[in-house]
């Protein structure tokens, strides 16, 4: 008779504790998710818009990540681009992403924005005005995805290649080149 209420009391305490913990956990998660939720904007553009960003970033190093939702190596390496942004923004690195997806298709735009939001791409994000046409690749002077370009502090363009130009640029090469241009 006496034991039961005691047990109940403990149960209540336990319940209360777990509730408090749950609330704390929830609020904790809430804070971190709102921290990560950077307002991502997607701007339709071409070389002129990209050049404008480079011009506005005078004295800084600009890293451009050309990617597309259909390019699986691009998606795989994108988190690394976000890391570089977080790591080197204070050292003068400006990161820009250019999606070579079809900018006129609202569904694809949603996919692009969804991916960028998930990645936490808190930098300038362009989507190619001419979609994934030959003209778009021509305009940006690129052929294959993924593709990375660095503009040095003087605004000069350097297309990143691996030691064997036929091979893709790895995150290691990306790290080396970014560090190299930031030190200049």
């Amino acid at each position: 008779m006496v034991r039961l209420p005691l047990l109940r009391r403990w149960l209540l305490v336990g319940l209360a504790m777990s509730c408090v913990c749950g609330i704390l956990a929830c609020s904790g998660a809430g804070v971190s998710s709102s921290d990560q939720e950077v307002a991502i904007e997607l701007t339709t553009g071409g070389m002129a818009e990209l050049q404008q960003i480079v011009d506005d970033s005078q004295g800084k190093v600009v890293l451009v990540d050309f990617w597309a939702t259909w390019c699986s190596p691009c998606r795989k390496q994108f988190p690394h681009t976000v890391e570089l942004h977080e790591q080197y923004a204070d050292d003068g690195l400006v990161v820009v992403s250019v999606s070579m997806d079809d900018s006129e298709d609202p569904e694809i735009r949603e996919q692009v924005l969804g991916f960028l939001t998930k990645m936490g791409a808190g930098f300038s994000n362009l989507i190619s005005r001419h979609g994934d046409s030959q003209q778009a690749f021509e305009e940006f002077d690129i052929s294959a995805l993924p593709h990375y370009v660095l503009f040095d502090r003087d605004g000069k363009r350097h297309d990143l290649t691996s030691p064997d130009p036929a091979k893709p640029v790895t995150t290691e090469i990306l790290d080396q080149r970014v560090a190299e241009y930031l030190d200049r």
Binding site: C71, P73, D132, Q134, F137, E138, I142, S143, A144, L145, P146, H147, A166, P168
Partner: peptide, 8 residues
């Protein structure tokens, strides 16, 4: 003309 697509 300029080829475009996925890198080999």
């Amino acid at each position: 003309t300029r080829q475009f697509g996925c890198g080999i």
